[in-house]
Nucleic acid binder design. Structure first.
Lengths: 224, 224
DNA sequence: GTTTGTATGTTGAAATTTCAACAAGGGGAT
DNA sequence: ATCCCCTTGTTGAAATTTCAACATACAAAC
């Protein structure tokens, strides 16, 4: 577990914990580490929802595919971020999503009970983790709010601009890179890829944005 | 605060607390109660996000209205349920939603810090509330997951059927009542009201469902 | 009973999305 | 350089949604 110490120190689950405490916490958690190839799943739809996952390296994507094969992307995860924690904390039996690596990745899986159930000797560590978990789950909530805000727009164009404006705001610049390619962006916005490409082309020709692969620049904010 | 004691005992924030403890907790929280007329807002978009609200009576709706006046309904709240807790716990400055009463209602507002900040004398009560809050926020997360699952469908028909199937499953019967009228249902599904009405009519004529105001019956599950 | 207002259903035209299919471009492997 | 695969852009037809407008039904108020 030593090699992951620095990543874990930065993980919000262990926020405000001394190195010593983190070490103790890790002993309590009896975590196991998995290595994932690109495309492999850390959690599959239907798996039991006891586990909290922590991304140690690489990037993963939370997605869900319906009956007809339509993929919907819910969020993307970077090192230090958690997944599965909402399902585990809410006490559902099975996870309704798949968490898949979009590049080679490493994750740590922890039984959620070993976080929330206080152990005898170091109770305040568990309390700290529970409190941190609360903030993490609440922050996830905000992410979903944002996704809903974006996807509730009725046209591809509006969805795209809403998404881009949010990213611009988040990153503090009108020029930025997004973590999705076209297909993934379409699956996040819940629209058709070809229609999205068409709309990007139109906005580009109108001089509202510049777009080159994952790099975007907002030249004229919408409503102007 | 006495008159609300029974509602509060059933509120998940106070789960697994003895009446004595609940009483102590309430002293800590220094809550204030508001009475709301139909249509009045308990929380308005842009308000500071320090407060956790608890519904004491009546029903409220979490909604958000964009630039162009398009309303989007995120969830509906019944007595005992919380609102605003995610924003407060995530530490955002302002709430991005409006919580409005759809009928005369009473709510209790509590500063979130008074929940999460342990006080000197009854620490375990705060710990219990933090733990309960974690489960509540996680459960909210599931609600958003469901909404996203429904609204990610591409056609009005699919959204409607996905929503109805979820309700049927939740309520354990193919015949049930929904909490939304047509306009509200459209705002939840993120579609046009007239298109929704048209689609309901079509499904009715095809014998797939029966629908009368808020009462629905699924006669033929989709895919059959 | 009548009035009034709200909720729901209907319709046709315009706008938009989806779908399928293909073209163009980039990057890596050999 | 060539081949191959993957990503992105383009296009036209079919399907769907939106929009505006109006008809009908229902419930509460007078």
């Amino acid at each position: 577990m030593k090699e992951y110490f620095d990543i874990l120190r930065a993980c919000p689950l262990f926020r405000d914990m001394e190195p010593q405490e983190l070490k103790k916490a890790l002993e309590c958690l009896s975590a196991k580490v998995s290595f994932l190839a690109k495309g492999e799943a850390a959690l599959r739809e239907g798996d039991p929802a006891n586990y909290v996952g922590i991304v140690l390296a690489g990037r993963l994507q939370i997605e869900r595919t319906d009956f007809f094969g339509n993929r919907s992307i819910l969020a993307q995860l970077a090192p230090g971020e958690l997944f599965g924690e909402s399902f585990a904390c809410a006490g559902v039996k099975a996870v309704p999503v798949t968490v898949a690596a979009i590049e080679a990745a490493e994750v740590m899986l922890v039984d959620c009970l070993s976080i929330t159930r206080s152990c005898g000797n170091a109770c305040h560590i568990h309390q700290r983790m529970i409190f941190n978990l609360l903030q993490i789950v609440a922050a996830k909530n905000l992410l979903f709010h944002q996704k809903i805000e974006v996807t509730s727009k009725r046209t591809t164009r509006e969805k795209l601009m809403a998404y881009l404006m949010l990213q611009a705001k988040r990153l503090g610049s009108l020029e930025f890179e997004i973590p999705y390619n076209r297909q993934e962006l379409a699956d996040y916005l819940e629209v058709e890829r070809s229609g999205l490409s068409a709309e990007i082309g139109k906005l580009r020709r109108q001089g509202a944005i510049e777009a080159e692969r994952r790099r975007f620049k907002i030249c004229r904010p919408p409503g102007a």
